[in-house]
Amino acid sequence: MANSTPHPAIHQVIHQAGRVVLGKERQIRLALACLLARGHLLIEDLPGVGKTILAHVLARLLGLNFHRIQFTSDMLPADIIGVSIFDRGTGAFQFHPGPIFAQMVLVDEVNRATPKTQSALLEAMEEHQVTTEGETRPLPEPFFVIATQNPSHQIGTFPLPESQLDRFLMRIELGYPDHAAERELLAGSDRRDMIATLTPCMEPGDMVELQSSLAQVHASDALIAYVQALAEHTRRAPEYETGLSPRAALALLRAARAWALLDERDMVLPEDVQAVLPAVASHRLHPAGGASGASAQEMAAALIGAVPLP
């Protein structure tokens, strides 16, 4: 197709990650697209389907320094952000940064912590900086949070409120591996050992460069009209309680641009929008009447089918 500016390394990432996280290329691509679009990712699924592995693999391959925080119900904001401790040697308070100070932060089971702790994390995600004791400290660039959460009907969880779900650019589900992938997984070597053998394909600077090249991906009037038509449909149609906000429409367009970039294109096609729609829109839409039962995929498919291309 037209003149593209592929970054060979990014395909290397997809390929390598696919070797460890089996049969989940689509989710790997979505996660990368989310990263390219400077968004944060929420993975919602049952324990044990590979959420942590995926985050770990991506951090490793992208050459980003990686911290993992396991959220618990007794966690306090300082446990994430860090604390100042009086250093007797220098006679001054010394800030000890918390685990949030990393390029890629994996927050496991984000819905186990209390709302207070959750909101400290989400504020950092939004602002790319943290403020403690009157001092504002920037977080490293790129800064990328992958949060995992268990389905909220499980006991001992504080479900994220809608306004905070909105901070995540995408929400994806991993799902069980298919038959062949599971066989390979069972037959293959231990995944944690494999992560240790992975070598980074990129440097942090490459990622920042790629992120800034996103603006070069062209979205034509016809395509913007399509994104708008999708958003307007959700506001008009009776099957949704509330429609997509303008912020959600912007997120959809940004994610579609990233998807096009992964596809080595310098323009966005309706297919890109449709590819990212389930991940971008499903946690922002609520079916009317409180009747939920349709999965994110089904809801997105219904939305796509209802809106003709302009």
């Binding site: 197709m1 037209a2 062209h218 034509s220 009037d221 016809a222 323009m267 966005v268 096609l269």
Partner: peptide, 11 residues
Amino acid sequence: YISLRYDRRKS
């Protein structure tokens, strides 16, 4: 069609 409708040249 794609280059006519979605590419940057058109705009």
